[in-house]
Write a protein that binds this DNA or RNA. Structure first.
Length: 421
RNA sequence: GUGGCUGUGGUGAAGUGGUCAACACGGCGGAUUGUGGCUCCGUUACUCGAGGGUUCGAGUCCCUCCAGUCACCCCA
């Protein structure tokens, strides 16, 4: 073995690709009913876009981007997420001049230079939705419902939806200072991670897995207490709509998202059985991003679903559909002299729309029957010297074992009729 | 970026200094000349992750690297 795939990448092999197609198809169906249209943006963008969009202090930007100079000396980056690209495209293509809000979805690979572990890859795939232009809680509710619907459709249960409000540029700084005030004295007792989070992203401290830190921050103030009137109203509105829609959710006042651009609504859907990487869907509102990217102030909300994690969850619950490998007809040639004839027959059967195959390894008739049996094949069409001489084929029904001599002409149409009965 | 565990053929794996590196599954071929699923038989090129070192001798001991895996960080 000379070359292996790059670390953190995975080949989707034939037996798994049907599962991917199934999940993608389900995603598209949900988007169709929610009236979201697909958008396909480039896999790489100017590095600048992500620096500005995601935020220079975020982990994604600081340590996880695949950045390189192209031959023209431009710094480009493999997209670590797709929201920034969608916003860029929205502005560049003036999608705001169409009917609003702009509702789009995407499915595709993302790249993050992380240490791989269960449910985490360097190239992974996300299915995401973005609704740009509407600021009220109704879009928040709609877009969350689309995710819920997606998981329902796949049959996934035991999912937890957590929501929170992370405030806006008006009220978040107020909270941030209040939180820092409350924690400052105890800071030396926190874990090293939390100490470094104190300045960079103090809200993360509330989310620390260390029991000690959780204890120390137990009585810290919560964002909800500091929300401005607008944010509080928005959050209340969302909760009402979700409740009315009959969706189970939990408010998690400590839920924080890792990207800078989030405002107001933040949410996450977890599938606890996945292990450490249990977030299967995450997103929120980003009312400041479009302006940050050079557009007019425009509210927006979106999220992404990790498809590898969805597949893992489906596997855990045995919800992946069986992949049929059965073929309609296997064409078997008795000897070398009849191979060409067999190939002709094969072509005819395929023209008739049948799923069929033949041997390409010059195997014996016996071996060909074995091969046919393994698919399995409903019928085997055998062509030997005798059949070839009179333009007939021996048609063997592999379930009953019966066989009969039939005319070669029109066999495709006849079989097709039989199989459809 | 940090840490734990792991690394033998297509797969699952025995083997912990000294005969040809077990066994099972799978793959391929065959079991009287044109026929499957069961059974039986045969077969399947081993740099034992890579590179160094110790030793008369290493898959077995040591070092380095690489990869996989799980966890931290972070996130989908």
């Amino acid at each position: 073995m000379l070359i292996t795939g790059p670390r953190g990448t995975k080949d989707v092999l034939p037996e798994a690709s049907a599962h991917w197609q199934y999940v993608e198809k389900t995603a598209r169906e949900v988007c169709r009913t929610y009236a979201y249209q697909e958008i396909r943006t480039p896999i790489f963008e100017h590095t600048e876009l992500f620096l500005r969009g995601i935020g220079e202090t975020t982990d994604i930007v600081q340590k996880e981007m695949y950045t390189f100079n192209d031959r023209g000396g431009r710094s480009v980056t493999l997209r670590p997420e797709n929201t920034a690209s969608v916003v860029r495209s929205y502005l560049e293509n003036k999608l705001y001049s169409g009917p609003q809000p702009t509702k789009v979805y995407y499915i595709g690979p993302m790249f993050r230079y992380d240490r791989p572990q269960a449910g985490r890859l360097r190239q992974f795939h996300q299915f995401g939705l973005e609704a740009i232009g509407a600021g009220g809680p109704a879009v928040d509710a709609e877009i969350i419902m689309a995710a819920v619907q997606f998981f329902r459709k796949l049959g996934l249960t035991d999912l937890n939806l957590f929501i929170n409000s992370v405030g806006c540029p008006k009220c978040r700084p107020v909270y941030r200072t209040r939180l820092q005030e409350a924690l400052r004295d105890k800071l030396p007792d926190f874990c090293p991670d939390c100490q470094s989070r104190f300045d960079r992203n103090p809200m993360r401290i509330l989310d620390c897995k260390s029991e000690k830190c959780a204890e120390l921050s137990a009585d810290a103030p919560e964002m909800a207490e500091c929300l401005c009137e607008e944010c509080a109203g928005h959050f209340a509105g969302l909760k009402e709509l979700l409740t009315a829609a009959g969706v189970d959710y939990k408010v998690n006042p400590r839920l924080v998202r890792g990207l800078d651009y989030y405002t107001k609504t933040a949410f996450e859907i977890q599938y606890p059985l996945l292990g450490a990487q249990s977030a299967i869907c995450g997103g929120g509102r980003y009312d400041g991003l479009i302006e940050e990217c050079g557009g007019d102030p425009t509210p927006a909300i979106g999220y992404a679903i990790g498809l590898e994690r969805v597949l893992l969850a489906l596997e855990k619950q045995s919800l992946l559909p069986a992949i049929p490998t059965e073929i309609d007809v296997f064409v078997a040639a008795v000897d070398d002299a009849t191979r060409a004839k067999a190939f002709q027959l094969l072509c005819g059967l395929r023209r008739a729309g049948l799923r069929c195959d033949m041997d390409f390894m010059e195997r014996s008739l016996k071996a060909q029957l074995k091969q046919a049996n393994r698919y399995p094949a409903r019928f085997v069409a055998i062509i030997g010297e005798e059949e070839a001489a009179q333009d007939k084929v021996t048609l063997k029904n592999m379930t009953t074992g019966e066989q009969e001599l039939v005319d070669a002409a029109g066999i495709g149409a006849k079989l097709k009729g039989d199989l459809e009965e």
